[in-house]
Design a protein around this nucleic acid. Structure first.
Lengths: 182, 182
DNA sequence: TGTACATCAGTGAACGCGCGTTCACTGATGTAC
DNA sequence: TGTACATCAGTGAACGCGCGTTCACTGATGTAC
């Protein structure tokens, strides 16, 4: 069932989009190639016509998710404004469309070079943008590290100890020395 | 091959210790029951005489790792001193004996209630200790979130972009508003 | 433009593998006398 | 204290399952004339 070149391109993009969401929601090992292709409206057999392996798809979907994150950061205009959206319950509840660093960084550390390189490049760009926006690069880096850590911790404890989750997130947006802007 | 009650206790502790190390090094899904029991000097068949499931072992090993972390935090006496050890390359290179929050928090968020509860209880104790030590609880929480985020990011990018890894870690120990103590 | 055919994107069955888990068996432990 | 036996911790083969990956096949696409 050959399809148009244009449709083939859409299929490829759909697989990457589905993977970027599902990997963030369930982790790399928590979702399979079959489920990703199904979410993209295809069957698993079509997968290897688009990607060399599951790992290659992971690398591409990480790059895509980080590219979007960089866009969102740039669009927010102000690091404090970005932090407010980041350290929110809306973001906590929507990992599939949220920061890929907070959802996938620990798994990335155990992947092959292709994945780690894609992740590191996207993350560096993300930090560079934040540093330029903030002016003081050190405080920008500090802020981002805090945001990522707070979200990672909050998501892990939220269902059992929502008070702790809220407390950790709140530290990122209240008039703290680091995240303060005005 | 029945063994002494005392030896059985040692076997159980050895399985937990091996799991606490291996889970942190390779992730929950990156290591199997067979490998854990082998690392503890047993065969996989002995496992289910000690634990109901792999998940039950994960809950116990998380509780144990967090208990040790709380001890280390208390022993450091000062949150700034703890932060210095935490944000070090030695810690980055030794995930198996390091902070379980930085290695396992994202996977914990996708586990069952037993695991999440064990993790949340240990993490709360950890934060409570830090809050008491520091005096100002908010700045203690801020500091810990930053430490966890920095380590998660640094480990993910270290092999591809060691400069970025070092930069992120350095933010936690230099005379930053948040981590400063003196 | 119309036609014939080579190309190739997608399908679904099949594969090999590793994993968590079970279980019949073994033989040392610990206890009842 | 010594003996006989029930208990049970550990062994290793076996299981079912889901996963990543492969491949023969299908039929629409795109191209050469």
């Amino acid at each position: 069932v050959k399809v148009t070149r244009e449709l083939r391109g859409h299929h490829r993009a759909a697989i990457i989009a589905a993977a970027a969401r599902l990997f963030r929601e369930r982790g790399v090992e928590g979702v399979g190639v079959a489920e990703i292709t199904r979410a993209a409206g295809l069957t698993h057999g079509a997968f290897y016509g688009h990607f060399a392996s599951k790992e290659a798809l992971l690398a591409e979907s990480l790059a895509e998710a980080l590219r979007v994150s960089c866009e969102q950061l740039s669009a927010s205009g102000d690091l404090a404004a970005y932090a407010e959206g980041y350290a929110s319950h809306a973001h906590l509840r929507a990992p599939g469309s949220g920061c890929p660093i907070a959802t996938l960084a620990t798994e990335v550390a155990r992947q092959g070079p292709q994945v780690r390189t894609a992740f590191a490049q996207g993350t560096r760009k993300f930090f560079d943008i934040a540093g330029t926006m903030e002016g003081d690069r050190t405080s920008a880096v500090t802020c981002l590290a805090q945001l990522v850590g707070a979200m990672v911790i909050a998501r892990a404890v939220d269902e059992t100890d929502p008070a702790l989750a809220s407390e950790v997130l709140a530290c990122c947006t209240t008039k703290q020395p680091v995240a303060r802007r005005d």
